[in-house]
Amino acid sequence: MSERIVELEVLRFNPETDAEPRFQRYSVPCMNEWVVLDALNHVKEAIDPTLSYRWSCHMAVCGSCGMMINGEPKLACKAFLRAYDGVIRVEPLANFPIQRDLVTVIDDFITKLKRVKPYLVPKSDQPVEAGEFRQTPAELKRYKQYTLCINCMLCYAACPEYALVPKFIGPAAISLAHRYNEDSRDGGREERQQEIASGEGVWECSFVGACSEVCPEHVDPAGALQQVKIRSTVDWYQEHLMPWSKK
């Protein structure tokens, strides 16, 4: 086990005393196999207990330690120190307001997530005795990758359209809507379309593709959004040119 001194440059902000954020430098003795989150934990425990940041699982499942590391949205628990040379710059997730230090205000995302109904809306009410809603492996595979989303919001930090147009519902929420739309047991697509096919929905996406590049779970939100655009376009033509085909 070898050790090295890592220079961390962390964006600090205290809303009670600071007019704007500033960088603070820490020299942290780190083990080679540590991730950025380990270094932050060491700072908190041994150097500066006032440093605030979110984390929980330390294994890329909970999605709470998203932050900008050298300008790139990353999970701090998945960003290995050995991948970086020199000073490592750590900032709160881009495109979200800073609550304190590395902690951001995520209410906007939570509100949008609720709007798209990211849960199964059964086609019809069915008594429990009727049994499970069954699904073939092919039907499962159709949407499986989107279930891997951990709501870490790295895709929002990477999305320039979300930065420029804050009302945009954004990558994760729309791909989760798509996940349920693609589910053979679901009947809620029309309700979700009211949100994701609106002016604040998928049409604000210009397919930059950054969301998919930064996703730590290898979900492809950019793909989901293009599929939603195509499906919504087909819908539009059906509704306007063939009104009799209304389902």
Binding site: P15, E16, A19, E20, P21, P97, I98, Q99, V105
Partner: peptide, 8 residues
């Protein structure tokens, strides 16, 4: 300082 979140 105004006690509010900081927007970049």
């Amino acid at each position: 300082a105004n006690g509010k979140p900081y927007i970049r």
